[in-house]
Design a protein around this nucleic acid. Structure first.
Lengths: 258, 258
DNA sequence: AGATGACCAGATGAACGAATCTGGTCACAC
DNA sequence: GTGTGACCAGATTCGTTCATCTGGTCATCT
């Protein structure tokens, strides 16, 4: 019993330290850009020694890969939590609106999505970040198929059509908001609403769905997000190893990237 | 009479030469990028002497400004021509679909819109290209107001909302198409359809419009495009001066940027 | 009058060497 | 067992120099 407690204490402290390092790295990359952010800087801001970082990750590259995965897992986790808190959001518009909203709150993921070389520097050339996550294409296709069977979305759009529109709208909203003159800019919140709504309307079938269809859609939406979350967690575990606590032990800070 | 004919022949030849130069410059910028394209290169490809370019434009910068304006005027001209040929396209979805389609055919305007530094090089940092053309914001607002009065679009979206969605979707479609894996990519034609359709659905009012409303909308659409074309032409005239023939004397090649 | 291309001042880019920086290591301290 | 930071090889940066390039000019030719 005591050995188990001690073991848990150590892993918890390691995870918290990893988080501190990831937090520090995030802040510095956003401020100075990837190229200018050194391991030494990260260590100092995280309040650890430089060598300590190598206790968590084997190389600089691994640290920054962990960063993206961490932010992504947190975003999907936040969407999932919102879905759980408010069942009314378990719809197609709800899902896209939440996704857009969470994405708009995450400058690092935004930078990755728009391949912002000011932030990501050499990472841009090296990693061709796709707006689709390959692992999630098939599950998204299945989710859409479920919606289509229940008359929730138009039957005349292919998976490619759907992905094109989702990618275009999510991506475009990030960039065009930045470029919009101040007098014409809408809030991030509003942008999220507009995006969710526009996609929902673009995909909506002619006839209003039945209540039973809505219920199936809600279940399918939650299942899809659960799956996305599981994939994101698995990826993050590749970067954090045993430092990542089991799912039920998430730290309270997760979901608030500050 | 004879002097007038001679005058016209000279101006026509000047305009054609200007077009040859602009055509050559376009091709080279797309191939080598703005930074690598020299005036000497342009002259050689256009089959004129280097000094001849300075008979049309005072500086390298002016030449490349003319380039963008030329392409833009051609795009809007093409949209306008399509509207005239097929009155059924004089609708909101028709307009956006045509715009998207023409934009997808114009790599230079695309590069400007997405601020592609591979193509535009130093021009990117210098000129903060907005996805909105300031001169066209108010006319677009008026066009929307007309549509709203006649129940053609939702009454709950502001001008900012509309612009946000238009900018996001047009812009996003350019970028995300490039980033989509080959197996998932749709054709440019299809992308244009999807975009026009999505925006139309996003903006559509609840109730189907009357035939009278449709007619007003068609008139308003044509008037809006006419106005956009006039603005684009005025801008182009700033770059070409008297070399630009009056509107009715457009060369047959205009509309086919090849 | 109009087109041309050699010329030139200033800009650019490549090469080089020296100084500095940085990712990764590991002996040492606790 | 864990955390540390001095150390070091290689990478990067920066200033200097010089060769080459390029935008713009204008005397010359047609």
């Amino acid at each position: 019993m005591g050995a188990t407690t001690q073991r848990r204490g150590t892993a918890q402290r390691r995870y918290e330290r990893a988080e501190r390092i990831l937090d520090a790295a995030t802040g510095l990359v956003l401020r100075w850009g990837y190229d200018k952010t050194t391991i030494d800087d990260v260590a100092r801001h995280a309040g650890v020694a430089k060598g300590t970082i190598y206790l968590h990750w084997g190389s600089r590259e691994d640290l920054f890969a962990a960063l993206m995965r961490w932010d992504r897992a947190q975003m999907i986790g936040a969407v999932r939590r919102r879905l759980q808190e408010d069942p009314a959001t378990a719809t197609l518009p709800g899902l896209f609106g939440l996704l857009a909203h969470e994405l708009h709150r995450r400058p690092l993921l935004q930078a990755a999505m728009v391949q912002d070389s000011a932030v990501l520097g050499k990472l841009v050339a090296r990693k061709q970040t796709s707006t689709t996550t390959p692992d999630m294409v098939a599950p998204f296709g299945e989710y859409l198929a479920t919606l289509r069977e229940h008359g929730m979305v138009r039957a005349d759009l292919s998976l490619e059509d759907h992905l094109t529109l989702v990618a275009a709208v999510l991506h475009g909203s990030l960039v065009s908001l930045r470029m919009m003159p101040d007098s014409l800019r809408v809030s991030d919140e509003r942008a999220g609403e507009l995006i969710g709504d526009a996609l929902a309307r673009a995909f909506a079938a002619e006839n209003p769905p039945s209540d039973a269809a809505r219920a199936v859609c809600a279940d399918a939406t939650r299942a899809f997000v659960d799956q996305a979350y599981a994939v994101a967690r698995a990826k993050l575990r590749e970067s954090l190893g045993d430092d990542l606590p089991p799912e039920e032990d998430l730290s309270p800070a997760e979901g608030d990237p500050s």
